[in-house]
Design a protein around this nucleic acid. Sequence first.
DNA 1: GTCTATAGCCTGATAGAC
DNA 2: GTCTATCAGGCTATAGAC
Lengths: 218, 218
Amino acid sequence: MASNRASARPPAPAGPDRRARRRQETIDEILGIAVDVMSEDGVTGLSLSEVARRLGIQPPSLYKYFPSLMAVYDELFRRGQIEHLATMRAAMVGVEPGLPALAAALDAAGRWALANRPVAQLMFWRPVPSFEPSAESFAPSVELVALHREALADAVAAGQLGAAADSDEAVWLISTMISGVLTQAFANEPGTQWGQGRFTPLFPRLLATLPVLYPPHR
Amino acid sequence: MASNRASARPPAPAGPDRRARRRQETIDEILGIAVDVMSEDGVTGLSLSEVARRLGIQPPSLYKYFPSLMAVYDELFRRGQIEHLATMRAAMVGVEPGLPALAAALDAAGRWALANRPVAQLMFWRPVPSFEPSAESFAPSVELVALHREALADAVAAGQLGAAADSDEAVWLISTMISGVLTQAFANEPGTQWGQGRFTPLFPRLLATLPVLYPPHR
DNA sequence: GTCTATAGCCTGATAGAC
DNA sequence: GTCTATCAGGCTATAGAC
C-alpha cells in the first residue's frame, strides 16, 4: 500500500465531506418535518413557513435546500416511490415465486402505505392539482408495473392463474384492490395498522379472488 | 271557498315567496360555483373569495348565505349524501331484488361519483382535515348502509349469496371495491366516464366475485 | 343584501447584508 | 447558509354605511 505523508489521518481538507453530510441531514430533517405537517394538515396543507417554524429557521433559509414548495413535494414523491418499490422487492425475497411472492409484496406495500400515509396519498391519490411529479421522480412506477407483471407471469407459469393474468389489466385490477382498501382505511380509520380495523383485513380475501378472475386451465 | 277582497290576485304581499326563491337560487348558484372551483383547484382549494369573484359579488356578501367556509363544505356534503342515496334508490326501482338490484345501485353510484367528482371526494375521501360533517349532513350514510344490507339480505334470501353476506362486513367489502375503482379513476384518469378507461370497467368483474366470497349453499 | 373598509392573519418567493 | 426586510399577493371574517 503506497502512502504519502500523513497517511494516518483522513484526506486533507475533509471539510467538503462534512459539509455535504450536514447538508444532507438538514434536507432529511426538512422532509421529515414536511411529512409531519402533511399528517396533521393534509397533503395540501404543507407550507414552507410551517416547516421553517418547526425547524427553528427563517423561511428564506429553506430556499438554500429546495428551490420551491413543489420541489419539496417532488422529492417526497421521488423518495416515496423508491422506498415503496424497495419495500415490495425486499418482501419477495425467499418467497415462492408467483402468487405467494405477489401476496407478500402487496402485504408489504399496504403496511408501507399505512406507515407513510401522507406520502402514499401524494403518490397515488394526487390531491395537489398544481403538482405534477417530474419524469425522474415518476420513473420507479414503471418498474413497479414490471414487478407486478413478473410476479403475475410466474403465477401463470406455475399454473396458479390463467394466461390472461399475464396482462396490464391484471395489474390494474390488483392496484384497484389495494387502493380501495387503503382509501377506506385512510378516510374512515386514520391511524390503524395493517391487519387491523374493518378494511385492511379484507385485502387478502380480495386478492384470493384472483384465481377466480383468471382461472388456470385446471 | 271564503275569499276576502282581491281574491283574484295571489296572496297579499307575495314578496316573501319571491324573495325566498331568489335566495334559494343564489344559494344554489354559490354551491355550483364552489363545485367548479373544487374541480379545478382540488377540494381543499375552495375559497370563498374565488366564489365571490366568479359570482360577481364581494366576498362579505357571501356571508349573508353561509356563515363560514366550513358551512359551504357541509351543505355540499349534505346535498351530496342525499343525491347519492336517491340516485342509488332510483336505480333499483323495477330491478330484480338481490344481486341485480345491488349491481344496478352500485353502477349508478359509480356514475354519480364520476359526474360529481369533487363532492364525492369531499364525502368519501375526506381531504379536508379541518372539516367534520355535521351529524345532520352525515345522517344519510346510515341509510346507505341499510340500503346495502337490504339488497344483500335479498340476495341471500334468493340463494344468490351465502348467509354470511348478510353482514356489515360485506357492506365494507363492496364499498372497498367501488372506492378502489373510483380512486384509481380520479387519480389517473380524471375526466373519464363510467365504463370508460382502464379502471371503471373492472368494477362489474370485482362485484362478480361476491358469490365466490360468500358462496351460497348450492 | 349589497357595498367599502379593514382587521388580522396566512403564504411563496426574492434581494441583499453578513 | 443564515439572517432581515420586503414584495405581492392570498385568505376568512367582521363592522358598519347605505
